[in-house]
Design a binder for these strands. Structure first.
Lengths: 338, 338
DNA sequence: GGAAGTTGTGAGAGCGCTTCCACGGAGATG
DNA sequence: CATCTCCGTGGAAGCGCTCTCACAACTTCC
């Protein structure tokens, strides 16, 4: 190892007996390079242990070969939800194929979201994937103003027609879930919906409404939770107090359903005999509750995988700039709670 | 916006009526800059919406203002474990205070671990945090050869004395957990240990052995699992078949304990009356099993938070290059299973 | 009152890389 | 045989930034 640190392109060129320009060409795909030059550059690279300096490269190419995953959520929620881990897995699966790295941007609302935006403005990354965004974060608009390649995981609140996104068909999923209860003969079906500032929650609620009205049932037994277990518990208590005659419960997330199951058990109601319950997500919680939850599986990894591919296309300029929309159907998973 | 793209330092300098050098100084902390120059640079920056180009900057400073979190695990395991999400949270909490970004490096063993190493070699990041590493990945050695600032989360298999790491006192934790069963009068205590290529698993096993021998109990009822629920289930089946007289079970992870509980329930054994069970982790699973698990809480976030701070010190050259070691005590959490 | 610091400033030299451009030589074309 | 094309090559111009260094303009000190 020479004193100055790692070897530079200059040294590679010198060792290979070619110019820096030729060495550079040989290293980057080898267009217009003779077989002889190519092989001597290859040898020099190997013997020197040369690795190109990414900063220098990206200074001139204006590419960083990294993309950001932006999670505009308070830390706590993000991390307690397996949704998040799956998301990263989906992204990484695609990135494993190309030579692009993942930068994780957790934007707590407020001060640090400004910093996140600055980071993206910087062109520190070639593109961004935004997941799990709320109504009021305004991120969609701000990102579009940057004209940074960008794909949303989950339908954004606004600008949905001018932005590329991949979503799961939450409405269809919850419709199907509700139908399970209808089919098993439930007469009085309530729902615990998610926070109304998230599109996924609103879409699921709409699905419940659709199924209920199609079956000619009343859709007035409704309570909102916050997608946490405790929230589900509180919502279930309120709901059962207001409507003690419920015999079916459609819950917008498994975690909330888990809380609801506790309430039902505590009040001596048997599941599914007295009250049948369906959850949503199937991201690891549903099979561990007592009884195991019938639920709707969200193909989260598939969603983010698709989102990532769309982003890469956008970065490469292959997508002609028109906003795409991909909607993935969810799958019903039958277990014991309904 | 001028045609060329985003504004450069040159333009800021021109607008502010100073030289590029002065503008640079004003932007970076403002040492040796007159109040007047400072304010006119500030104004120029604001009016132009200037953001420094990170590639250009890091080309000369040789800093990237980002650190890597290296996870040398097959995807699946990493993501199903809440450990991972907590880790990221710990890191991010610290990084939120300084202006440093997190690059996530998931190194699937084999081909891509070579790529990961290349990425680190590149000095694409200023330092690395390595978590959840197995015996054979040899990452410790390779990283040390790079002399890249680097901190391990969890004691590495080798080089433990030449490398900085933060660990949780797994031995003490499992000793305490075992003691709970001993104190409640269990006579025949078995254990389901983790994979023997992970230091955390081995340390916990050692803790069990210590407590057992201190109490004068036989430590021969042992089975290994793989830290998954299914693995725990299989291990529990084998263990109960070989030692039907067990009245206490020390399980090295809550997920495995959850599998074990199913086996016990299926065989008609009551928990904790017939068999008392303690888990390990308390990362969200323990409170959801039936019965809720008495377990040992791993302060994962604290661990990675500390690791991150140590890394930052190393990067800043504040740590004098000597390898530090931080050991965090775990906490016993009492619930219903023992 | 001259020597010795102190402070703010700008010119300019790179950091390591890609890429434009000009050029010589080889092969194809008339 | 002159001309046109194409290919491989190296010289050189930057990409946008930081930072050393020299310099002028002040203080401060003996």
């Amino acid at each position: 190892m020479r004193p100055g640190g790692s070897p530079t392109l200059d040294e590679v060129a010198r060792v290979a007996g070619v110019s820096r320009a030729t060495a550079s060409r040989a290293i980057n795909g080898g267009q217009r390079v003779s077989a002889h030059a190519q092989s001597s550059v290859d040898a020099a690279v190997r013997s020197l242990g040369y690795v190109p300096n990414p900063a220098a490269r990206s200074l001139v190419t204006r590419r960083t070969d990294s993309i950001a995953v932006v999670v505009p959520e308070p830390d706590d929620r993000v991390f307690s939800d397996p949704f998040f881990a799956r998301t990263l897995r989906g992204v990484n699966r695609v990135l494993g194929e190309v030579d692009i790295q993942l930068v994780l941007l957790l934007a707590r609302p407020g001060a640090s979201s400004e910093r996140t935006l600055r980071y993206l403005t910087n062109r520190h990354v070639d593109g961004a994937i935004v997941v799990s965004h709320h109504r009021d974060d305004g991120l969609a608009e701000q990102l579009m103003r940057l004209d940074l390649p960008c794909v949303f995981g989950g339908r954004p609140w606004s600008g949905g027609d001018r932005v590329t996104y991949v979503d799961i068909d939450n409405t269809a999923g919850e419709r199907e879930a509700t139908q399970v209860l209808i089919d098993r003969g439930c007469q009085r079906i309530g729902t615990i919906a998610g926070p109304s500032d998230m599109t996924a929650a609103e879409d699921r609620l709409a699905g419940w409404r659709q199924a209920m009205s199609a079956a000619g049932l009343r859709d007035d037994a409704l309570e909102h939770g916050d997608f946490t277990e405790d929230g589900g518990q509180r919502a279930a208590e309120a709901l059962m107090a207001a409507h003690p005659d419920l015999d079916g419960l459609v819950v917008a997330s498994d975690l909330m359903a888990s809380g609801a199951l506790k309430v039902l058990a505590a009040s001596g109601r048997r599941v599914p005999d007295d009250v049948a319950v369906v959850g949503y997500d199937d991201l690891g919680v549903a099979e561990r509750t007592t009884p195991a939850l019938t639920t709707v599986r969200q193909p989260v990894e598939e969603m983010t995988e698709r989102a990532t591919r769309l982003l890469l296309e956008q970065i490469d300029g292959r997508s002609a700039g028109r906003p795409m929309r991909v909607i993935i159907p969810p799958t019903l998973i039958r277990r014991d709670s309904a």
